[in-house]
Design a protein around this nucleic acid. Structure first.
Lengths: 215, 215
DNA sequence: GACGAGACATAGCAACGCTATTCCATCCTC
DNA sequence: GAGGATGGAATAGCGTTGCTATGTCTCGTC
């Protein structure tokens, strides 16, 4: 039961929060169903009126920002299923595979995540998908597998390469097989560029990619 | 002068082609000016009526397809300014730099180029930006700089990496400096992954990237 | 010189995002 | 407990969007 004594300024009331999440989830569902996410259709599906979008999100751009954020939360949850091992390069490849898996499983949500036209309500939530990469790269540097480079740079390059490969596949420019064909090769190249030993790198990436795809 | 005798079925009449190109160029100009490209605004700027978009392109999606194609033609022209040298890795880096330059110079056009929602009138025009990459990678294989890998795979990885890095910058996720910071490193990593010698690779990429950025 | 095809201009359609207004439920004050 | 105030939700309507139907006008053909 909600008590105004406990929360003198009830930032989001429980009932309001339910409407919020219902709208966000409906938008994501319509996105997944490849239906056009229009204001009226969204309100109809969520069982509310069109005004709810404005009271809770200030308009459609605000809703898209919330959907973006939902996408990053979903990505972070997916990457959290990849548990670190004692082989950081294995882990980097596993994270890359999980990242690609998540993107192709929710293609329109993935595209919406990188729509710069709308702001994220909480910008630092985007780091949730980036932090595991940096952590693995840091361990690779600490273990001596990588040269003493900046782990953030290595993680950034891996992210950029994966992002580009995923988008080319989602855009239909490259076939879906390109993900499994070029993904591990790209991860291996980035790790080689960071100073890893070629033979160990190839083995770690191979095992890591399949481990990340499975989970 | 147009002669109906020479072209019994005058596929695009000169006057019609002028209207076509005027509409495409106006759309690209409005895109570059960050103005919303609406049907009425576009027709007004081009000095035609809204019907011209339908007679020539069949609607707004058709126009966007033509704009997409224009973007690829523009990209191919930019990459053609990078003349091959006797160092194929240098050339690959130069092409990467030119690719990134072209993208940041026309960010909205670049985004439109990869909008899978509309079809390209002539799909093979997209290869115009890809062929120089494959050619350079082939020479690297022939020269023995690269292992006997598939040049198309190497070119694909370089493209994916560059595409991802460019889009992360255009989306505002990464700062603009990331292009010069991570671009050469990514090109170097891909070439290392193809079997190039680390020392030669670093030198070639460094000189190639600055050569491609300048031109 | 009449005919027919193709392109243009105009008017109007449904649907879009958004806002103003009204209604109503809830909560605080006395 | 009753009354006033606050804020979310529903309805109606605004301007604009892409698109289509209709009329007109020019050009090429027989």
């Amino acid at each position: 039961m909600y008590s105004s004594v406990m929360y003198p300024r009830p930032v989001p009331k429980p009932a309001d929060a339910a409407v919020r999440t219902a709208l966000i989830e409906q938008a994501a569902a319509m996105l997944a169903a490849r239906e056009p996410v229009t204001l009226r259709a969204l309100a109809g599906r969520a069982g509310t009126s069109t005004m709810a979008v404005y009271t809770h999100f200030g308009g459609m751009p605000g809703l898209w920002g919330a959907v973006r954020q939902e996408g990053f939360v979903h990505l972070a949850a997916r990457l959290a299923t990849v548990h670190p091992t004692d082989d950081p390069v294995h882990d980097l490849a596993a994270l890359g595979a999980a990242y690609a898996d998540n993107a192709v499983a929710h293609p329109l949500l993935y595209r919406a995540m990188f729509d710069a036209a709308v702001d994220l309500p909480d910008p630092e939530v985007a780091d949730g998908g980036f932090a595991p990469l940096v952590a693995a790269a840091s361990r690779a540097c600490a273990d001596g597998r990588f040269d003493p480079v900046d782990p953030v740079d290595v993680a950034t390059r891996l992210w950029a390469a994966g992002h580009g490969l995923v988008l080319l596949v989602l855009s239909g420019v490259l076939p879906a097989e390109a993900l499994r064909a070029q993904g591990p090769a790209l991860a291996e190249a980035v790790c080689l560029g960071a100073g890893d030993d070629p033979a160990r790198c190839a083995a770690s990436v191979r095992s890591g990619w399949s481990a990340g795809s499975a989970g």
